[in-house]
Amino acid sequence: MAENKISKKELLQSIDQVSFAIDDLLLFLDTHPCEKRALDYYGELSLRRNELLEKYAGLYGPLTIDTGNDSCLNSWQWMEQPFPWEQEGGCR
């Protein structure tokens, strides 16, 4: 069975969408800190975002320091990859 491939652009878009939803939900939780459904949904979204960030890091390199693999580094690889906006279709 072939693995479902997702493009770099699609993966970044998914990360952006989940991140936006989390930010919006955090604003709600600022005023409704005991709302169980919102807290549960935050947990789901947070898990999904972490999965997407790890998938992106495995395919294209880390977007955040949290997904950088520091176990076997011979150099600071964080800066060796182009920034997302330097990619095709970016701001340049």
Results as ranks from 00 to 15, higher is better:
Leu12Cys: 09
Gln87Ser: 13
Cys34Ser: 12
Leu25Tyr: 01
Leu29Asp: 02
Gln17Pro: 02
Pro62Ala: 15
Tyr60Cys: 10
Ser7Trp: 01
Glu3Ala: 14
Glu3Ile: 14
Ile15Gln: 08
Gly68Asp: 07
Phe28Met: 01
Gln87Phe: 06
Asp40Glu: 15
Glu3Gln: 09
Arg92Val: 11
Leu52Asp: 01
Asp66Asn: 13
Ile65Leu: 13
Arg37Met: 08
Pro82Ala: 06
Leu27Met: 07
Leu29Phe: 03
Glu54Gly: 03
Arg37Lys: 07
Asp70Phe: 14
Asp16Pro: 00
Gly89His: 08
Thr31Ala: 12
Glu86Lys: 05
Ala38Phe: 01
Gly58Ile: 11
Trp85His: 10
Leu45Ser: 00
Arg48Ser: 08
Thr31Leu: 12
Thr67Leu: 13
Glu3Met: 13
Glu3Arg: 12
Ser75Lys: 04
Glu86Ser: 11
Leu52Arg: 03
Ser46Thr: 12
Lys9His: 04
Ala38Arg: 00
Ala2Val: 13
Ile22Cys: 01
Ile65Asp: 14
Gly58Ala: 09
Glu35Met: 06
Ser46Pro: 01
Val18Pro: 03
Val18Phe: 00
Ala2Tyr: 07
Gly61Phe: 11
Gln81Thr: 13
Gly61Ile: 11
Cys34Glu: 08
Thr67Glu: 15
Met1Gln: 09
Ser46Arg: 06
Leu27Lys: 05
Leu73Met: 14
Thr31Phe: 11
Leu27Asp: 05
Gly90His: 06
Leu27Thr: 02
Asn4Met: 15
Gln17Gly: 04
Ser14Leu: 07
Gly89Met: 11
Leu45Asp: 00
Gly90Ser: 13
Asp23Val: 02
Asp24Val: 09
Glu51Ser: 10
Lys5Asn: 04
Glu10Lys: 08
Gly89Lys: 12
Asn50Cys: 06
Lys9Pro: 01
Leu39Thr: 07
Ser7Glu: 14
Glu10Gln: 13
Pro33Gly: 05
Gln13Pro: 02
Glu86Trp: 01
Leu25Gln: 00
Met1His: 07
Leu27Ser: 04
Ser14His: 09
Ser14Met: 14
Asn4Asp: 15
Lys5Met: 12
Asp24His: 03
Asn74Met: 13
Trp76Val: 15
Lys8Pro: 00
Gly68Trp: 04
Leu52Ser: 02
Cys34Lys: 03
Leu73Gly: 09
Ile65Phe: 10
Thr64Phe: 03
Lys9Thr: 12
Ile22Trp: 00
Ile15Lys: 04
Asn50Glu: 15
Ile15Val: 14
Asp66Phe: 14
Ala2Cys: 07
Phe83Val: 08
Leu53Phe: 00
Arg48Met: 11
Cys34His: 06
Phe28Pro: 01
Asp70Ala: 10
Thr64Cys: 07
Arg49Gly: 04
Ser14Arg: 12
Cys91Ala: 15
Pro82His: 04
Lys36His: 05
Asp16Leu: 10
Ala57Glu: 12
Leu12Thr: 05
Lys5Ala: 06
Leu26Phe: 02
Glu80Gly: 10
Ser75Leu: 05
Ser14Asn: 10
Glu80Gln: 09
Phe28Leu: 07
Met79Thr: 10
Ser46Trp: 07
Tyr41Ala: 03
Ile65Tyr: 09
Gly43Cys: 05
Glu80Val: 05
Tyr42Ala: 02
Ala57Thr: 11
Glu3Tyr: 06
Asp24Cys: 09
Met1Tyr: 06
Cys72Thr: 14
Asp24Asn: 15
Ser46Cys: 07
